[in-house]
Write a protein that binds this DNA or RNA. Structure first.
Length: 256
DNA sequence: ATGGCGAGACTCTCTCGA
């Protein structure tokens, strides 16, 4: 089984790339997508189903929006964080092959002095509380997403330059550790990885070419699934095409 | 040097992302 997270930065632009990537990766069980930037009425459900997949989605105009594309049927699809009033569509979860797959687009925060940063931290608190219940109900759980948090300095191309910035701040990293404290494990760090492994690069200043990136897209696995994990890799292949997303997929492989 | 790039929208200039 393989589960994937990929912030596509507009599914309208990236749908052909997504379908091509899925065709090239037949082992993928389910793909969690962030930043679809599409209202539900505009979502390309028919095209995705015509390609042989099941799909669940929750979106809005212009910003945010999440979806799950799976090769097997999904059950118990849920949207957003119950009890947390939020117009923004940032969470979708579904059960696939007995695994609870949660796809999240965690807020960016903009800057440490922004209202959006306050929203990010309160969102993370509500999300963590909700996830605790999800884990109790579904011990086999994967949390896939764009976390907008680089957990450690080794996840940052230039830690000195980023010090004090959003995505690396102490409260954000503390919120990330609170997720781990639920019993989740960063599957990427279960294995030896190349130094300077990142999942996002700034479009500007030749960020990808210079590998000036951050590792902010993560796949956390629950204790019940951790022993089954055999690999976790960042796939930079999608960066080879015209008009790539600024994020690239991260893939976790589990024994059946 | 707070710039740079890319996407979206009540667009030709603005917001937002990370």
């Amino acid at each position: 089984m393989q589960f994937v997270t990929w912030n596509v930065n507009s599914l309208k632009i990236r749908l052909p790339q997504v379908l091509e990537w899925l065709a090239a990766n037949p082992g993928v069980t389910a793909l969690g997508i962030q930043e679809t930037k599409l209202e539900d009425t505009a979502f390309p459900q028919a095209e995705i189903e015509a390609a042989g997949f099941h799909v669940a989605f929750a979106g809005q105009k212009t910003y945010n929006g999440v979806a799950i594309i799976a090769r097997a049927p999904m059950t118990a699809v849920s949207i957003n964080i119950p009890g947390f009033a939020d117009e923004q569509k940032r969470v979708i979860a579904a059960t696939i092959n007995d695994v609870r797959f949660v796809c999240a687009y965690i807020p960016n925060g903009q800057s440490l002095d922004s209202d959006k940063y306050v929203y990010k931290l309160s969102w993370l608190k509500a999300f963590t509380d909700w996830l605790q219940g999800e884990l109790a109900n579904h011990p086999k759980l994967i949390l896939a997403g764009d976390y907008n948090i680089a957990p450690e300095d080794r996840d940052v191309h230039d830690p000195a330059k980023w010090e004090g910035q959003v995505l690396v701040s102490g409260p954000e990293r503390s919120a990330f550790r609170q997720l781990l404290a639920l019993g989740l494990t960063d599957s990427f760090r279960l294995f030896d990885q190349p130094e300077k492994s990142f999942s996002w690069w700034d479009y500007r200043m030749y960020g990808f070419k210079r590998n000036a990136g951050l590792r902010i897209d993560h796949l956390l696995v629950s204790q019940a699934l951790k022993p089954l994990v055999t690999a976790c890799v960042i796939d930079k292949e999608p960066r080879r095409v015209e008009r790539p997303s600024d994020h690239t997929p991260v893939i976790v492989t589990l024994a059946d």
